[in-house]
Design a protein around this nucleic acid. Structure first.
Lengths: 229, 229
DNA sequence: TACTCAGATTAAGGATTTGTTAAGACCCTG
DNA sequence: CAGGGTCTTAACAAATCCTTAATCTGAGTA
């Protein structure tokens, strides 16, 4: 799996073994993880860490999950954060109570790592779906369609490899704007991927080879841009 | 749909009193009823329950009715399911939006139980009469028939196992659109089944073996798509 | 003209993703 | 409970993509 900008996950549970289990699995999936041993600490960490997802045990000393959730929900920075409760099947909290304080999901222990990871990635997938940018861009005789990962040049359909497609799509989305190689790396490769800036040249070359030289212009000393004619 | 087995109805509304009212009346009429307090739960329950009818409040916390409907419509098991929106007259959602995401009907609150029950039974009556559901897809020399779980390739009829069929059917229903392995697992296996993503590969392979390599394309790093030629 | 610098091009390897096969688990049905 | 079919996993092979490094071009300039 290519690494994207890592989602941040905060895990709050008073049992250390569970904390470690979760941390280990989440990091293996490429998430950036912080852990807290009780609700109080969790809220404190969340304030600075601004996680995208909080896994929250319901039963804890020093502030239980429900109260912690209430406080998290009150932080403006966390409006887009997912909060998921962890709870033993035997515990008496009802789902209703959990959703009442603003939880987004509800997972019962014992935790099966694979299942949990799958649910989490589904959560984020749904998230990004909502704010999908326009999935099709048309410029002259060039049609770029994100949903099918194909482009059409003069009626001829071409399949682009992922990186090339992302690169073209990104540039075309911001026409006439020049991006430095670093900008492009940042936006397409992600902030935590380190590759040489020259790599961009190669991809640009390949894209040009497929769509022609007219669409992407080099601005010497600066970068590349997609030109709207 | 079987005529002996009771029709299954799922009611999704965030107001408990309404939920109870509907549940009571529907059960009195002999339907098998499940209830959910928000769209999120509704979608989860629907996946397993496979209702014949979903009554869906439009305004709800944790996923509104429109989004829930969209997700319900994406489930292969629910192709024959009726989806009916419930809405207060004052609410701003337009009928158009509702029908856009695949709603079958539209009922305004306050709900009059007798009227609603009559409308529902009318719905099912209509169903059993003209059950020429469009559960058949034809693409080139490929015919996919849901009612018999059978496909025809170049006149030759083939019986597909369930998973392979669902996979092909789902892809063919959204032609030219790329789905990640996770998307496919989510939609075909369900959100509560945790299977390795690579399992999809194997099923793809088997489907290709039976229908040929031309219909399903791999988009490396992204997923698979069914291509309309 | 020759030099320099930035970008263009190319090819090779390494890395990653997908294809393919097979084995075991599971579930029906006879 | 044996046999056939299905589903999932694991392991290895194959494909292809990505990155790097090395070399080439061409414009600007001394």
């Amino acid at each position: 799996m290519g690494k994207k900008a890592a989602y941040k996950v905060l895990v709050v549970d008073d049992e250390e073994p569970i904390l470690e289990l979760l941390k280990y699995n989440l990091e293996k999936e490429g998430y950036e993880v912080k852990a807290a041993l009780n609700g109080h600490l969790g809220v404190d960490i969340a304030r600075k860490f601004k996680p995208d997802l909080v896994l929250l045990d319901i039963m804890m000393p020093h502030m239980d999950g429900v109260e912690a959730c209430r406080q998290l929900r009150a932080m403006p920075d966390l409006v887009d954060t997912f909060i998921v409760f962890l709870t033993a099947r035997s515990e008496e909290y009802s789902e209703v109570a959990a959703f009442d304080v603003g939880a987004d999901d509800y997972i019962t222990k014992p935790i099966k790592p694979r299942a949990l990871m799958s649910r989490i990635s589904a959560l984020f997938r749904r998230d990004t779906k909502g704010k999908t940018t326009t999935s099709q861009i048309t410029v002259g005789d060039l049609i770029i369609d994100r949903s099918s990962y194909t482009i059409k040049v003069k009626g001829k359909e071409i399949n682009l490899p992922k990186k090339e497609f992302e690169l073209l799509f990104f540039l075309a989305q911001n026409p006439n704007k020049v991006f430095s190689r670093d900008d492009l790396l940042q936006n397409i490769w992600g902030s935590d991927v380190y590759v040489l800036a020259r790599t961009v040249d190669v991809h640009i070359r390949k894209v040009r080879e497929k769509i022609g030289d007219d669409y992407i212009t080099t601005v010497k000393g600066v970068g590349y841009k997609f030109n709207l004619i």
